[in-house]
Amino acid sequence: MADCAQCGVALQGSPLICGGCGAVQPVAATDYFAVLGLERRLGLDGAAVEREFHRLSRRLHPDRFARASEAEKQNSLAATALLNDAWRTLRDPVERVEYLLKLEGYAVGEEHAGKGKSAERQPPPDLLEEVFELNMQLEELRMSQRMGETADAEVVADLAAAEKRFAAMLNDVDAALVAEGARWDGGQGRAEAAARMIELLDRRRYVRNLVRDVRQSLTVTA
């Protein structure tokens, strides 16, 4: 842990502020978990972290430094931005997983699929057949929309059913992510858990886009 830039006392908890003299620290290389005084774990007590976020906000926010020196203002702005970035990222369970994996050196999303051939566009193997079918139906629906015709009721019904199925699949993915996250936090078989989470994140992105596309097409029809 670093020392306070002002009074030299060793910093405890968040590295953004000195617990001793209260000085806002110049922002140094740090990670979002540290910013909120957290260990690098995927399971977190949302309410407790929110309380910490509010507590730190009260101390760091630029509103508290309106009459301070230019340097203090800049520190406050940078520290508050970092605090907000940290809370925005970590409060979301999916973003939290992505962030932690990247922090631990894993390639996630575009980084491992390669730019342009993002995993978002490549269906997971077990969904290939179903997605092919779904895309045909979507195309049919869009065609009839373009022609100004009434959409085939059967196609609409099939798509609505598919939407439900894929939305449920999203929930399954999220549940699986939580389970793998717990395994990661347990410390046993981390590499395996990480590989599985990366796969789940890809699957999640893909399915989420599918659900969005189907929803959009169905709203236009309705």
Binding site: P62, L77, T80, A81, L82, N84, D85, W87, R88
Partner: peptide, 8 residues
Amino acid sequence: NSTIPASA
């Protein structure tokens, strides 16, 4: 709807 200050 990101809380400000915010950075990227």
